[in-house]
Design a protein around this nucleic acid. Structure first.
Lengths: 221, 221
DNA sequence: CTAGGTAACGAACGCTGTTCGTGTCAAACG
DNA sequence: CGTTTGACACGAACAGCGTTCGTTACCTAG
């Protein structure tokens, strides 16, 4: 009936919708305004359309976030040089970084066996490095499970500090104060070791070393 | 103006609201009907009241879930006998079990340094066991970080299978089929080791052993 | 120039978390 | 015994959400 104010033909060359631009737009919104801002309506508005239009390319919000996760994992670079352990550490650190940079994406990875193209590429490289380290097939298979789980978990933890309004330092000092006010009779170890609990240092790298050393010292079966 | 159909005095002795009954009701709903059903309105209805009434005892939905997490962690028993390693494994398995039994609670734990009373009790017992194992303070402090992270992550992964309509076996066979259809040139290791990736066995216990062995073989600094 | 198939859309449904102002009751006080 | 008080509970409403439905506008093939 009523013609729209500007006919679609006259519009300034709107980029056509596609799964890719939707995913990219989602990542932009996530990075700029956080997880709460990542709504279907918001993505649609950014693309100058209505929410309904997105559902041609994306099954639902979860599907969108899964796709966004895999897009983020495409950024993980291939570690080039060093021993297999060094390259494995670099790979895991990079994967953690890539996932933690976008709030909420790591949580998606924790909820499902990875099946995205780029997630599987990371997994494949992990397996190659473990085999290079001389592990047998079963141990290597179980190890990637553990390593991927740790990467996702570390990223989930990191992303909270990366994105929340509150900084990491604030959160730590707040926790430190909480621990300091605990009754020593109910929480003797925390009270005694409080200084060590919050001792600074590169925990992330130490965690990776623990995992690698543990895997090497724990044959499956 | 209009008198309500039954005056409040005449009602059949409605149990008074309190933070505790709200948290307990929340856990019941979560266990019975899943995370999506855990809405403020649903909790209120279960308690025969309106949503607004809950906000006297609970700051918001996140606050409720945090309280629910700590309530769930109260169920973690104290391991009695065995070596320190056996007791540590039992403690971690129990904590994982407690968190994974209630969908979505593990995700809460991943998002914050634990400060709940019962979470701290678990943490305190972990520390005691690590010290019993002869670790120095710094290593023990960093180790609880890693162990708690793993517990939360393992619980988050578990809870998906525990609660989703889809069973764990279904998810695995689906992933297996996906892996089987991968191009061997792009994913050589996954293709070659697919059988080992899905080999059954007690991965959970192996993971715990890896962590413990790794911690023992990786002094901080 | 017309027909057809598909991508895009506007509007709506049934929810959600949270807030505000009002009502109601039991206990404390004069 | 009558009144005041203050805390708790509640109804209603707001703004927003994910998702679906039926219709429209468009490009392409005939």
């Amino acid at each position: 009936m009523t013609t729209p104010p500007t006919s679609r033909r006259a519009r300034p060359a709107k980029a056509p919708l596609s799964r890719d631009v939707i995913v990219r737009t989602g990542l932009e919104i996530l990075d700029r305004d956080g997880l709460d801002a990542l709504t279907m309506r918001r993505v649609a508005k950014e693309l100058d359309t209505g929410p309904a239009s997105l559902y041609v390319y994306v099954a639902n919000r979860d599907d969108l976030m899964t796709a966004m996760l895999d897009a983020a994992l495409a950024q993980v670079p291939v570690a080039a040089e060093g021993t297999w352990q060094e390259r494995l550490r670099a790979l895991m650190a990079a994967a953690t970084e890539a996932m933690s940079r976008h709030e909420g994406l790591a949580a998606v990875a924790l909820g499902a066996i990875p099946t995205g193209d780029n997630a599987l590429l990371v997994l494949d490289r992990m397996l190659a490095l473990l085999k290079e380290g001389g592990l047998d097939d079963t141990t290597a298979g179980w190890a990637v499970d553990l390593l991927f789980l740790h990467v996702a978990a570390a990223a989930a933890e990191q992303s909270v500090y990366n994105t929340k309004d509150i900084g990491k330092v604030d959160a730590i000092t707040a926790a430190d104060r909480r621990y300091a006010s605990l009754p020593a009779d109910e929480y003797p170890m925390i009270t005694a070791l409080r200084a060590s609990l919050f001792a600074h240092g590169d925990r992330g790298t130490w965690h990776l070393n623990v995992l690698i050393n543990g895997i090497l010292h724990t044959p499956a079966r």
